[in-house]
Every structure is written in C-alpha cells, then in structure tokens.
Design a binder for these strands. Sequence first.
DNA 1: TCGCCATGGTTACGGTTGCAACCAATTTGT
DNA 2: ACAAATTGGTTGCAACCGTAACCATGGCGA
Lengths: 149, 149
Amino acid sequence: MSDDSILALEAFLPYRLTRLTDAVSRDFSQAYRARLGLTRPEWRTLATLGQYGTMTATEIGTHSSMHKTKVSRAVAALEQRRWLTRKPDPGDRRVEQLALSKAGEKAYRDMVPVARGFEDDLLERMKPAERKALMEGLAALERAALNRS
Amino acid sequence: MSDDSILALEAFLPYRLTRLTDAVSRDFSQAYRARLGLTRPEWRTLATLGQYGTMTATEIGTHSSMHKTKVSRAVAALEQRRWLTRKPDPGDRRVEQLALSKAGEKAYRDMVPVARGFEDDLLERMKPAERKALMEGLAALERAALNRS
DNA sequence: TCGCCATGGTTACGGTTGCAACCAATTTGT
DNA sequence: ACAAATTGGTTGCAACCGTAACCATGGCGA
C-alpha cells in the first residue's frame, strides 16, 4: 500500500517521457551536430525536405511538428549554407517552394544511414518482445495524447 | 519494399518521442502553470522535495534529472515565494539542506491529485493491453537508453 | 469591386537554457 | 600539514525559443 499523498516522480508518465526523450534526443543530436553542425530544427527541416522533395514552410512545420518561427529560422540557416533553395510559387505569391540543393541532398543521404544506425543500436539493446511492446505502447499513447481536439 | 535512401521522419523513434513528450509535457505544464504559476523546473523541485522531505540541491538534480543551474534557479524562485527554506548543513558548509515550508507543502498537496488526475485521464484513453505494452516498452527503453555508461 | 478576415512568412522581444567560469569549502596525496 | 584536485552551488553570457506584432498577399461576401 503506497501513500496517496506522495507522488513518485520517477514513475510519473510525463516525467519518464521527458527524461527518456532528453537522453535519446541529446544522444542523437550529437550525431548530426558533430557531423554537420546542425541544430535540431535544421536537422528536422533537412529530413523533411529529403523525404518529401519540395514543400512550403507551413507544410514543413505541419509534418515535423515545428512552430513556424522555428521553421523560418531553420530554412534561413540552411539557405545560407546553400543546402536549400527557394522558388516563388506561381499560383500564390505569399508562398515559397522549398527544396534541397545538390549539397543539401548529399548531406541528407549522408545522414540517413547515421539516423538508421542510431535507432537500430538503440532497439538492438531490447528484446524482440520489448520492442514490440514499445511500438504498440507508443502508438497507443500517440492516439491518446496527440489526437485531443 | 521501402526506399532505403529515405527516412520516414514520422516513424523515427527520436522524433516520435520528442513529439509525444512535447504534447504531454505541454498539456501537463498548463495544469501547474495555470494553477500555481510554476515553471517546469520549479514544479520538479517542488515534487522532489514533496516526495523526499529534505534534500540538497545536488540530490534534487540527480533525482529529477535537472542540470544544476536549473535547480539553482528553481530553488531561488521557490525560496522567494516562501515555499522553501534553506538550512546550513552542520557537517559540510558548502551544502544547504532544502525543505518545503508549510506553504510549499500545501502547494504540493494540492498538486498531487492534479498530477494523478492528468496521468489517469491519459491512461484511461488506452486499452488495458495497450497500457501494459506502454509500461513494458518504456521500462525497456529506459534500460536501453539511460544506462549507457 | 471594395472592405474585411484569413493565411504564409519574418522579425523584435522577453524569457529560459546550458556552458563555462567562478567562489568557497572539503578531500586527497605526499 | 599543505598544495592540488574535487565538490556544492551561483552567475555571466550567448544561443535558442515562443508569443505577439507585423507585412504582404489572397479569398470572400456584400
């Protein structure tokens, strides 16, 4: 019987999630920070454009869950690095179509195996049944936490 | 057969974790921010002292996974609010023993059911088998990700 | 067509963070 | 016993972030 007036922080779901995410995210960020000198918003923008080819800033934000100011600054940084180009949208002059340059695509191709390797290393430390449970549990939590209208 | 040269960001574990944690953490932070006007480091410090009674700043940081500067600033803020008191440690004059004041304890007691309610609401949106999978998967991922020496 | 609201995107600003430098007190090695 | 290294804790600084304000363009109703 546990004391109802005490909250065990180490068992509290929001705390466990942030601690876990901080650790995983920090470890992974070292991979692209050390390798490419990218910030996290820049990496996400690179990854989104690498995955989808051409997108607007708003679409990047929607797909990668980033605030539009983050996207704006990341796009500006990648553009300055010549990893990204802007093209005016012929149908709507508010919009710019964004795409990776050749150098940006190369950086993306370099990073994909690194990202896969990082994820694989992490998952290989778990038993198959544990991996299955994690995937199932995360999917359920995503349904529970993200789809709150 | 999927394209090996493309990384699906929405299926990438570090991304899924950060997105999930951002959502959960943001929702929960509204509870204590609106109710008590606390920042996240302040809430964690309150929760840690509420759970353990008396601790040093370093111990708080270890238990709640916070950088010592965060702890230092959170302690200063809680002290200014008169929710926390410092006592010199008789055996080591570098250290200060920290504890909640009466007002701090009251705030803690008020917050515990709110935190429990938040967690319960979230978990109730999941089926029992999904909850079980989540707990098992998170525990395994904690072993895999946090215990990297 | 004209006025008004919505949308895409950028920027200024205040607040938060982590790193590194720092001070004081303690421990360690010789 | 004393210099050097370590530890507890605070603070200055630069980078980063979200909010809100803003500009330009587009959509829409009267």
